[in-house]
Amino acid sequence: MSIFPSPSVTRLLQVLALALVAAAPCVHAETSEQILDQYRTQAGTAPDPSRGQQFFTSKHDHEWSCSSCHGDKPVQTGKHVVTGKSIGPLAPAFNQERFTNTAKVEKWFRRNCNDVVGRECTPAEKADVISWLLTLK
């Protein structure tokens, strides 16, 4: 008997390995640093935490700033400016669920940037904000 597995077993192992590789992005939760990296790459420039803070706490010719709901320093529970519902801290050091799912991050940037800036945010703006949030410890 050969020490190598039979062709059918080899084929099965190949399929299993492929399935694992394919499933990896779905089951593997991202980290906030990885998400920051994605935006950094898209922007093509280095993120600037102080610019991120400025962007987050200022109004952009619209009614609200990011701070209106999240607070000036989002290390504590915020409060929805319209409904009053409490919003968990945004800084990853104070809320480990934050910035761990690209689709969720994109959904909220899309919604909230439209309310705060009147358009979608650029990858550079997103990277700036996340880089600032990561400095909050």
């Binding site: 319209v82 899309r110 919604r111 909230n112 439209n114 309310d115």
Partner: peptide, 9 residues
């Protein structure tokens, strides 16, 4: 997109 004054798309 215009959900009672908020974008909730």
């Amino acid at each position: 997109k215009q959900h009672y004054g908020v974008n909730a798309s």
